[in-house]
Amino acid sequence: MSSIVTAVDRIAARFGFVPKDRYGEPPARGWLVVAGKEFADHLTSARFVVLLIILGLAATATTYFSSGVIRTAASAASGTPSIFLRLFTIASDQMPGFVALVGFLLPLIGIAFGFDAINGERAAGTLPRLLAQPIHRDDVINGKFVAGLATIATIVFALMLIVAGIGLVRLGIVPTAADVIRLLAWFLVAVVYVGFWLGFSMLCSVALRRAASSALVAIGTWLAFTLFAVLLVSLIAGVIAPLPPNPTNEEILANARWSDLLARLSPPTLFADATAVLLDPSTRTLSTLVLASQVDRAIPSTLSVTQSLLLAWPQVVALVALTVLSFAVAYVVFMRQEVRA
């Protein structure tokens, strides 16, 4: 429709008819223009190159050692399903596995592309100029978030391709359809998880005036969650449901339930759980609490793709919710700020 209007205008102008309003409508998708510019900036930025090199090296090294482990154990492992996925998860003596190391480092991408999103524009003096253009105010933050997500998706996808490529060359194993589905599901979850850190670091960039303090707060929070979360969880669970020297079954149960619940408030835990289920078909439960009676008669078998997705569903939903929440807070704070300040 709009192209017809443009064409009519062009023909009218060709014959000397000036359109009624030379301005026309402001661009309907301001966020798309912002996102396009930001995405191009990200891809040509030094931090993109640095992150891609660091994470690429981590991915190559872990996969190299993992594939070595798989090769030596190849005869024993010939019957195991999803050898291809083992490439991503298995740890060697020298290195942790791909998902362990890269999963730990992934939030850095989100932080790197979000920590100076707004305060960087403020410091450079470009924010008032940007807001004086005919776009809505939220187009700025929406466009930046979308551009950040696209950059994250680009990097994570490239890393997955590196691992898959090494696997194909060194091991000659071809993924099954189920493997591909599991990997794509993991990819989406990883983007959402890194999106949480993107949203959080954008919140820092809205709330804090200086890019350096915003980066420090974001990285500090990331380290606190990944390194000290386990410690904190057991501490708090111990306070709420204490374990006396000779605990009863009920007390152990209560403590374990609280530990599980608290751990699932932490995005890294949610992501690790979802990863464990999606990339390892033999993961059958995420609870730390498994009664002997439940294991007793269980036949060691693997889950199908749909069953794994079902098992990981609560974690995935929780991650999406946390990501939406982190971005929503950044959005609201940004919308309420004065243009100056």
């Binding site: 661009p27 223009v33 008032p128 100029r129 004086a132 253009q133 005919p134």
Partner: peptide, 28 residues
């Protein structure tokens, strides 16, 4: 309305032309 803010800044890594192009795109 064209507006030149107090202490207006630009994207330093981009050329002058690229900065103007961004503004033009934002204006449709």
């Amino acid at each position: 309305v064209g507006y030149l803010p107090d202490n207006a800044g630009f994207y330093g890594a981009l050329s002058g032309r690229a900065n103007l192009r961004y503004t033009a795109h934002l204006n449709g």
